[in-house]
Design a binder for these strands. Structure first.
Length: 585
DNA sequence: AGGCCTTTGAAGGCG
DNA sequence: CGCCTTCAAAGGCCT
C-alpha cells in the first residue's frame, strides 16, 4: 500500500485501523511511530475500560452535561479538523453538542413521550421506518432509541412475549405493564449494581415496557436468576407461561424488566396473539412456548458502535433519506471515526456498562451460546470468510491511491488492556487480553482495572465529558492523565489517514465513503463480479466485504442515496459521483 | 421467506 | 497466542 510516511501524524490517521488483529505484527513495528496515535484511540477506549464501577456511583450526569470538549486541537491534523468540521456541518449538528445532557448515565425515560410507547422514537422502528424520525421533541434523549436496546421489543408490531398482555390487540398500543410505583430504574440486584441507575435504556422500563423480554425458557443457563420480578410481572409471566417456565419470583429482577437481549424467534407472532388468545389455549401455548423456548437466545450486548448506530441511524436516515442500512452503516462508520474521542467515549462507556449489566443479568451467558444456537437453527450463514479473503487480496493488489479508500474495517480498535496500554505495553496486559480474550481486568470491572505502573501515558485520561464520572478507578485513568495532553488525539484516524495515504485525494477525490456507498449498493447486486479496476476494488478495501462491481440499476439506486450521503461525508467533493459512475461503468 | 449487505466492537474457538 | 469467525442492529434488496 502506498502509504505516505508523513511521520507520526500520518499514521495517526490510520492507527486505529491498523490495529487490526491481522496486522498486529506490523503494527508493533510501527508502534513506536504510531504509538501516540494508537494511544489516542486506545485512550478513548481505555478510558472506558478503565472506568471502574465506581463510575456508576458517580454523578456522571453532571459530567456529561458539561462535556465541553476542551480537546486539544493541536493534536489533530488539519485533515481531521476539516473532516470534523465537514462532519459537523453535514451532520446538522450531530457533533456540535451533546444533545443529551446527562447522558449516558441518566436515562430516565420520558414516560410521557409519545415516541417511546410505540417505539416510533426508535429510528429504526419498523412500523414507521419510512418516517425519518427526528428527534426529541420532548427532550427525549437521542439515545433513547438505545434505551430500547432492541427496537423489536418496542415496536408495536412485535412486542416481547412477556408484553403480550401489555399490548392492546386492537390498537397495538402498548400499555404500561408495570405499576407506577415501580422505579423507572432497573436495580439489577440488591447489590451495588442495583444502586446505580442504569445508563442503559433497556434497563429503564419505558412506558412500562420491559426491554428485555423474559423468556423463561430456553436458556442454557438460568440467566433470569439474576432478575427479580415484581408481583405484576410475576403474575404476567405466570399467566403467559406454565409454572415451570416462569422463573421463580425471586429470580427475576425487582422491576420485572426482562433484558431486551432476550429474544425469541417468535416475537412477532406472540405479539399478534395477545392476551385474548391466552385464555383460549393456554396449554397449547405452553407447549408452543416450550418448543420455542429453545429458540430463545440472549442477544449480545451492543458494543459502542452499535449503540452509536442506533442513536444516529435516524438522523442519517432523515438527512440522507437513505434507507438501506448498509449505506447508512457506512456513513455511520465514517462518522464514528470522525467522532471526537469524548463522544466515542460515551458510547464505549455505555457499551461497557451494558456489558456489565448483561453479565450480571446473564452470568452464564456466552456469545458462544448464540452462535451455537444459530448453528443448530442454521439461522444464517455468512459468507464473510470468502469475502474477507477477497477483500484482503484486493488490498494487496489494488492499491490504487486515487480510488483507494481508507481502510475502514482494517482497524481493530484496541480493546481492554490493549486499549489501555497499547501494543507497546503488552507486558501490562492481562493474560486474556494478550491472547485477545476477554479482559480479566475489565471483567472484574472494579479497581482491578488499576492502571499499570506504566507511565508512558498510553492510557489516556477519561474524556472530558465525564472526567470525574468516567474515572471510576483513580488508578486507571488518573495514573496517566498527562498522556492525553501529550499525545496527539486521533480517534478519527481514518479521515486523517486517508488523505495522508493518498495525498492526491486531498485535491478533491471522492470521499471513500462515497465510493463505497455507491459501490456498496451496486456491489451487492453483483457480488460475484470482480471490480473492473483497482479503484473499485480498493473501495472495497475500506469495507473489506464489499464486492467490487455494480450494476446500472443498482447504481441508479445507489446514486440517489449517494447524493444524499455525499453531503454527510467529510471532505466531500463535488466529484464523487463521477467516480462512482466510473466504477460502475 | 430468508439471506445479504454494511459498519465496528466484543468474544470465543481453532491451530 | 495469533488469527479467524460470528454476532450484535437495521432495513432495503436480492434470490
Amino acid at each position: 500500500m502506498p502509504q505516505l510516511n508523513g511521520g507520526g501524524g500520518d499514521d495517526l490517521g490510520a492507527n486505529d485501523e491498523m490495529i487490526s488483529f491481522k496486522d498486529e505484527g506490523e503494527q508493533e513495528e510501527k508502534i513506536s511511530e504510531n504509538s501516540s496515535a494508537e494511544r489516542d484511540l486506545a485512550d478513548v477506549k481505555s478510558s472506558l475500560v478503565n472506568e471502574s464501577e465506581t463510575n456508576q456511583n458517580s454523578s456522571s450526569d453532571s459530567e456529561a452535561e458539561r462535556r465541553p470538549p476542551p480537546r486539544s486541537e493541536t493534536f489533530r491534523d488539519k485533515t481531521r479538523e476539516s473532516l470534523e468540521e465537514a462532519a459537523k456541518r453535514q451532520d446538522g449538528g450531530l457533533f456540535k453538542s451533546p444533545p443529551y445532557p446527562g447522558y449516558p448515565f441518566i436515562m430516565i425515560p420520558d414516560l410521557t413521550s409519545p415516541y417511546l410507547p410505540n417505539g416510533s422514537l426508535s429510528p429504526t422502528a419498523r412500523t414507521s421506518n419510512k418516517v425519518p424520525v427526528v428527534q426529541h421533541p420532548h427532550h427525549v434523549h437521542p439515545l433513547t432509541p438505545l434505551i430500547t436496546y432492541s427496537n423489536e421489543h418496542f415496536t408495536p408490531g412485535n412486542p416481547p412475549p412477556h408484553l403480550q398482555t401489555d399490548v392492546d390487540p386492537k390498537t397495538g398500543i402498548p400499555r404500561p405493564p408495570h405499576p407506577p410505583d415501580i422505579s423507572p430504574y432497573y436495580p439489577l440486584s440488591p447489590g451495588a449494581v442495583g444502586q446505580i441507575p442504569h445508563p442503559l435504556g433497556w434497563l429503564v422500563p419505558q412506558q412500562g415496557q420491559p426491554v428485555y423480554p423474559i423468556t423463561t425458557g430456553g436458556f442454557r443457563h438460568p440467566y433470569p436468576t439474576a432478575l427479580t420480578v415484581n408481583a405484576s410481572m410475576s403474575s404476567l409471566l405466570s399467566s403467559r407461561f406454565p409454572p415451570h417456565m416462569v422463573p421463580p419470583h425471586h429470580s427475576l429482577h425487582a422491576t420485572g424488566i426482562p433484558h431486551p437481549a432476550i429474544v425469541t424467534s417468535n416475537v412477532k407472532q406472540e405479539s399478534s396473539h395477545s392476551d385474548i388468545s391466552l385464555n383460549s389455549s393456554k396449554q397449547s401455548d405452553a407447549k408452543k412456548e416450550e418448543e420455542k423456548k429453545k429458540q430463545v437466545h440472549i442477544k449480545k450486548p451492543l458494543n459502542a458502535f452499535m449503540l452509536y448506530m442506533k442513536e444516529m441511524r435516524a438522523k442519517v436516515v432523515a438527512e440522507c433519506t437513505l434507507k438501506e442500512s448498509a449505506a447508512i452503516n457506512q456513513i455511520l462508520g465514517r462518522r464514528w471515526h470522525a467522532l471526537s474521542r469524548e463522544e466515542q467515549a460515551k458510547y464505549y462507556e455505555l457499551a461497557r456498562k451494558e456489558r456489565q449489566l448483561h453479565m450480571q443479568l446473564y452470568p452464564g451467558w456466552s456469545a458462544r451460546d448464540n452462535y451455537a444456537a444459530n448453528q443448530q437453527g442454521k439461522r444464517k450463514k455468512r459468507k464473510r470468510e470468502k469475502q474477507q479473503a477477497e477483500s484482503n487480496e484486493h488490498r494487496e493488489y489494488f492499491p490504487n491511491p486515487c480510488l483507494s479508500l481508507p481502510p475502514i474495517t482494517d482497524l481493530s480498535a484496541p480493546k481492554k488492556c490493549r486499549a489501555r496500554f497499547g501494543l507497546d505495553q503488552q507486558n501490562n496486559w492481562c493474560g486474556p487480553c494478550r491472547r485477545k480474550k476477554k479482559c480479566i481486568r475489565y471483567i472484574q470491572g472494579e479497581g482491578s482495572c488499576a492502571s499499570p505502573p506504566s507511565t508512558d501515558g498510553s492510557l489516556l485520561d477519561s474524556p472530558p465529558s465525564s472526567p470525574s464520572s468516567v474515572v471510576p478507578s483513580p488508578s486507571s485513568k488518573e495514573s496517566k492523565p498527562q498522556t492525553e495532553q501529550m499525545q496527539p488525539l486521533s480517534l478519527t484516524m481514518k479521515p486523517a489517514h486517508q488523505p495522508l495515504h493518498h495525498p492526491h485525494l486531498l485535491a478533491g477525490p471522492p470521499p471513500p465513503s462515497l465510493v463505497q456507498l455507491g459501490n456498496s449498493a451496486a456491489a451487492r447486486k453483483t457480488p460475484g463480479a470482480s471490480s473492473h479496476n483497482g479503484a473499485l476494488e480498493h473501495g472495497d478495501v475500506s469495507s473489506s466485504r464489499q464486492p467490487g462491481s455494480s450494476v446500472a440499476s443498482s447504481m441508479a439506486r445507489s446514486s440517489a442515496s449517494l447524493c444524499h450521503s455525499l453531503s454527510l461525508l467529510p471532505n466531500t467533493s463535488p466529484q464523487p459521483l463521477s467516480l462512482v459512475t466510473k466504477s460502475i461503468e
